[in-house]
Structures are given as C-alpha cells and as structure tokens.
Nucleic acid binder design. Sequence first.
RNA 1: GUGGGUAUAGCUCAGCUGGUUAGAGCGCCAGGUUGUGGCCCUGGAGGUCACGGGUUCAAAUCCCGUUACUCACCCCA
Length: 424
Amino acid sequence: MARSSFQSPKGIRDVLPEEQPYWHRVEETIRKIVRLYGYERLDLPVFEETALYRRGVGEGTDIVEKEMYTFLDRSEKSFTLRPEFTAGVMRAYIEHGLAQRPRPFKVWSLGPVFRYERPQAGRYRQHTQFNVEALGEIDPALDFEIMSVAYHLYSDLGFRNLNFQINSIGCPECRPGFLKQLTAYYAGRKDDICEDCRKRLDVNPLRLLDCKVPACQPVIESAPRISGVLCDECRDHFARLRTYLDNAGRPYVINHRLVRGLDYYTKTVFEVWAEGIGAQNAVCGGGRYDGLAEAVGGVPTPAVGFASGIERIVLTMQSQDGAPPAPPHPAVFLVMQVPQAGEQVVSLLAELRAAGVDAMMAFGGRSMKAQMREANKRNAEYVVIIGERELADGTVTVKYMDAEGQETIARDSLIGFIRARLHE
RNA sequence: GUGGGUAUAGCUCAGCUGGUUAGAGCGCCAGGUUGUGGCCCUGGAGGUCACGGGUUCAAAUCCCGUUACUCACCCCA
C-alpha cells in the first residue's frame, strides 16, 4: 500500500473505474424496472433529526443502540447520517401530505447509508442502497408487487438460484400473544441457551429465533411458531400473498425464523439470499411496516418496501461466471506524427465530439509509438493519424484497430466516414 | 464491542534457521534507425521492508508495544 498522509475512513471504500461498469449495469437495470412497475424517484437528505431514527427504527435495535453516526450541528441540534431509508421516506410522506396523491404512493431511492459497524466482506460503514417503498395500501397484492420488483431486478441481472425467504411476524393484534408463548417456552430452558439469548429473552424475544449458536438450535427447532397464532387478518394476508407467489411460479421458502431486526415490521417480512458476499447472505431485505407512520407521529398508514445493497449485488455479479460488463472505450483516438499536427488534432477532436463521436487524443507530444500504445490500451476502435503528408494535402489517415488496414481520406469527410462505420 | 490472520515496489507476492548495494511477475516509462498499437526483446523509474522500542558486532528476518488492513462473531444491505 502506498504511503500517504490520508486514507479513507475505516469501512469506507472507493469505487474505482474498473468497478464502474458493474454499477452502471445495476443502475441501468434499476431504472428500467422502476419504470416498468410505475415507481417514481424520491431523493431524501443524507441526514435527519436523530429522533426520527430513534423512534422510526426502534430504541431496542442494534442500529439505534450502537450503529448510528450521530453529531451535533452548530446549533447543538442532534442529527444522524441515515442508517436506512424507510424512516426518511415516511417522514417525507407525512411532511408533504403525500397521502393526498393516488394510493399507494410508490417511490424508489438510491444512495448511501451509514452504519458504524466492524467492516468485513460484503459489509461496509457506508454502503449504497436501492430502496423501494409503496405507502398507503394494505392489499397483499402490493406485498407481491414489491417482492416482484426485487425478483425482476435480480433475474434481469442474471442471478442464479434466487432464494426468497418469507415469513409473517404478525401485528400488534397477535404478536404479543405469541411473544408470551415464546418467552414462557424459553423460561424453562434458560440453561440450554447461549448468553446472548438469555439477554434477548428480556430485550427482544423475537430475535431468539434468529440465533445461530449451535446449542440454541434444538431449542429453536421445537419452539412455538408464530404461524400457529396469527390473527385472522394476518393469516389471511399471508395466505393471499403466498397464493400470488404460487400463481406466478415464484420460488420461495417459508422461514419461521426470519424475524428481521427493525421494530417497525408487521406481517410480511422477506429477504433474498445470495452467495459470493462473504459470510453475509442477504442482498435484499424488506417487508410490511404498518406501524411506522404512527411511530413517527403520522396517521396510521400501511406500507411495504425493501432495500437492497448495491455493493452486495456487485459482489454477487462478480462471483458469478460470465463476462463482466464491458468498460467504455473511445470510437476514435487521435494521434499526431509531428508536433505541428497538434493544432489540427485539437480542432478535429472538438469537431468529432460536436458531432457526437466519442474521441480522445494523445497528449504530451510523445513518440508516435507511444501514442499508438496508448490508443491500444484505451481500446479505441479507430486511430486517426495526422502527419506531415496529411498536413500537406488536407487528409487524415484512419487505421482500424481490430482489423487489418488503414486508409487515407479527405479531412472534411472524416466525420461522415466514422459515423457510417459506427452505425454498422 | 469480542476473537483469529496479515503488514516488503502501483498490484500479486518471494526473501530459508538474522549477515554486507532488498528481489520476481504484472503494471508504468523509454528504446528496438527512416510516420503506426497488440506478441517478443532491451533498458529505466519506483521501496524510510507499517510505525516505535528492544536483543545483537549485525534485524525485512528474533522479542515487546502501537497502528492499519483483513476475516469471522454480533447484526444487517
């Protein structure tokens, strides 16, 4: 590693040009799909009042307890770099009276989110999320639509073995009863479970089901399942969602242990799992959050959404075999055989670009061989050479870089000549 | 917050049990005569061997500490 006075902060990375083709491909696909499904873009601030996240995400969550980048501004107000999108979307929805628009209000966002965590493969302190939300509607067909957006994205990106995990975690009507059952069940087994789980029993019992410690597995295995105690409304909602999935032939796995860490989820929760992202498995997580609006001071508003991490998508793409997205390369690269051709090269370059032909020139007055080598490294399709002869008779020489041959043509016919070939 | 691993050129890494001007491949730059890329050949630039201390006649190499990076746990995208 090169020495330097500075380096990027821990867990925060640069996306160098060679990785950009992947990002470009992902963004292109996202734009295509949100249009297809009728979602509009919503850009939100990168930081919000701290209280929004405390109440929106939930006091008991890891995000709020230990992962937020919180700071005081010069007026001593507390703000926090967004650790997720959903709370901000809800804030904007309420603040701008967006409930007045046709419902559901369907939006997507793309941008960085921040969490203070120990970085590891597929996990960063700043990462980029593609976020999709639909607010103001409880119909399970909307849950299905949201999941379809995710499905469509990954399948268009060529992901194999799409692994959708779904569950229903109930609502304020039925979940308390389940938690009572669950804690009662665990109360008699305190000696059989790990230390973390003993804490979860008091703090966040739902997460007991999420534990990966081997000793806890048999306990989880025979634990009561929420599916048995869902209220009629939640049971019906979940059943209808599954029907839509079945009818569409979508693969999914019902995962009784999928509970998710954020407080605001109700009913449907889902994740999409992928390989190639280190020890992480989720490229996408989401669900229904009918209780969030009230938690942040709005009128009750049902909503569903998901977030997907672009870095994890890119890692997944890179781990799959198949050709990487092609990097950009110029159609034309201009080379001067003698320094006197410099003026011609500079004006010709401007003319080419004005005509919409992407072009570059060799800078710095190096040898022609060096200029040709650069043209090759930059993968130019055509090299246009201007030398003494061309200067003398008002011509240019066009060389084909991935074929044999070259030809000398009138300078004025160059743009037409190149355009004709690029359209082939 | 907890645990493991690693720190030598831009990148990937050699450098054995301490010994004199620290190496390779790739990349970069320049040449291989008269105006031309890719292959090949030649040459060149580039390193306070992470940092600080210690042991020793002698440390990239051994010991201690610090920092950084990395993987994993927790949790999540």
